[in-house]
Amino acid sequence: MSKKTLMARGLFVAAYLLLAIWAYTTGKGYVVFINNYATGESVEVFVTLDKASPVRIRRGGFVPLMVKGKGTHQIMVRREGAADFEGAFVYPRSAEALSIAVAMIMPGQELVVVPVSAALEER
């Protein structure tokens, strides 16, 4: 086998591995717990993360949702009798799981995200 073909093959294998690593790192799903624990006049809400379809969270309930990769993600919260909330949050590099309380989401204010470590054990 000539040096050239050997190099071509090496490059091919390297590109292949890079593709796999890229797919793994950018595509990995991370969990976001979104709770709708009752505070006052809390009602059921519909939450949309990135381009996923809306998920219903009943009053007092919580759902684990997945986002693709760490970094910035869009969130939209729709509830009856209130304006839709649209915002973004950053998934911290250090976090293994994230918790967002719908009750803490107020229009015009920054979103509060809480990194969870204990939640991971539960899953």
Partner: peptide, 16 residues
């Protein structure tokens, strides 16, 4: 199992 989502998941599956 590695929880890789979307097109990246499909690419990873193809790579394997």
């Amino acid at each position: 199992d590695y929880n890789v989502m979307g097109i990246q998941g499909l690419l990873l599956a193809t790579c394997i």
